[in-house]
Simulated assay, not measured.
Amino acid sequence: MLRRSLIATAGALLAAPAIAQPRALRLMLDWTPQGYHAAWFLAAERGHFAKEGLNVTIQRGFGSGDVVTKLAAGAAEIGFGDPGAVVKHNADNPGRAMVNVFQYFDRTLAGVITLAGRGIARPADLRGKRIAAPVGDSGRVLFPVFARANGLAADAVTWITVAPPLREPMLFRGEADAITAFVSGAFFNLRALGAKEADIRMFRFNDFGVDVFGNALLLPAEMAAREPEMVRGFVRATLAGLKDALTDPAAAIAAVQAREPLADIPLETERMRFIMREAVLTPTAAAQGIGHVDPARASAMVAAMAEAFAVANPPSAESFMRMDYLPPAAERMLPAMRA
């Protein structure tokens, strides 16, 4: 009888359907964990990823442009990076193309930053000035487009090549007249050095003729085509985490600090509010829902990037700026950020 019972049990186990295992994914951020990354930390903590059958490991990045290179090398499956960098990558690597499946930042954070007293009240005043930036900085790469849009010759400035941590100190000490950087970093770094908020002047690219998108969720085109429901689930979980972050900023920053123990809570809270205001909670997002990509604007971005990177055969915007993985617009409307 025991033998028959064991045989019956074994048969029942063999006949039972296999339990689906969560899809393991690696998400690469653009930098170390900061407040604007909280959507993914909360999606992990509050079960939004698990609900979509995903087991997501989140890892730091080393720059929004570098994310594309790391994805192509297989360092992660999904990345939060610069869709502008995809223009050159896809032109050079048509067999390993990347796609943008969720336009998180409606505007780039790149810009030219200076201080009062440097004689720079408008972009044309940069003529003859010294600008400090790393070679690969997105603002420096796009500067020729910015210059042309503002009646300035691209070679009318002198570039000082520096490591990222040195540019704000050089500007503050007067060793450079301006820098290119993400305004979200430069603003807080200059203030920490002692600059008065009223003295910080920021020429945001979107406001001065270079209307390009900011960071987005990127992944290999082949993977997106092979696993469309996985991609849609990842986007839904991201949206859920973002809404949680906006309605509960304290929990959002706590989730960041759990992964970056040295994070300054007041600073990261202020930085998150700054970035949400600058790049996420925009009029476009309010009218069309976050993730909306206007075709004409996307084509203009491709043209700007092709000029900046000297790409002769750029991909079409519609080939990689995708909206078919998004939920309906009504589900992409965001709440105001709670005080």
Rank of each mutant, 00 (worst) to 15 (best):
Q21V: 13
A225F: 05
F102L: 05
A18P: 00
A255C: 04
R96K: 07
A10I: 02
D264R: 00
A225M: 01
L25F: 09
L25M: 03
I275S: 08
E175N: 09
G241L: 13
A240K: 07
A216T: 15
A43G: 06
K88T: 07
F187K: 10
T57W: 03
S299Q: 12
I290K: 06
T161I: 10
D264S: 11
R191N: 11
L109Y: 10
V141H: 00
F105T: 03
A15P: 06
G65F: 00
I200A: 01
K88P: 08
E270K: 15
G84M: 03
V101F: 10
V311N: 04
A287P: 01
A303H: 11
P169T: 07
A38S: 15
G214K: 04
D137H: 02
K243Y: 08
E278P: 00
A245I: 14
T69I: 13
F102Q: 05
D244A: 12
A153F: 04
L166C: 04
L115V: 02
T269E: 08
L326Q: 12
A10N: 05
T238I: 15
D137R: 01
A312S: 12
D66E: 11
D211E: 03
A198Q: 05
A306W: 04
P228G: 10
G128W: 08
L246R: 02
A75Q: 14
E260S: 14
P295A: 04
Q257F: 08
T57Y: 03
T247M: 08
S5E: 15
Q103E: 12
G136D: 15
V280N: 00
M28N: 09
D248P: 02
A306E: 14
G111Y: 03
T161A: 02
L14A: 15
P17F: 09
R259G: 04
V302E: 09
A296E: 11
N150A: 05
D199W: 09
A154D: 10
N100K: 01
G128H: 12
A192M: 11
A306L: 10
R201P: 03
L334N: 05
G65E: 13
G209A: 00
I290E: 08
R118H: 13
A121Q: 09
A12N: 11
A306C: 06
E45M: 01
M170K: 00
I290V: 14
A121M: 12
P328N: 01
L25V: 09
G65V: 06
P144M: 04
A192T: 14
R226N: 08
F182I: 10
T161F: 03
A330G: 03
M28D: 10
Q21R: 13
R277I: 13
F102I: 02
L54V: 14
A176T: 13
G233M: 10
A8E: 02
A339T: 07
E52K: 04
A176Q: 13
A250C: 06
G74E: 13
K129G: 14
V112N: 10
L152S: 07
R201Y: 05
W40H: 14
A43I: 01
A221L: 06
Y325N: 08
R130N: 00
V56N: 05
F320N: 02
R107A: 09
R46A: 02
G136A: 14
A250R: 12
V231K: 03
A76P: 00
D244E: 12
A156T: 12
L218T: 14
L29A: 04
S138E: 11
G289H: 00
M202T: 09
M28T: 10
P134Y: 00
I78C: 04
R118K: 15
L142M: 14
V157K: 11
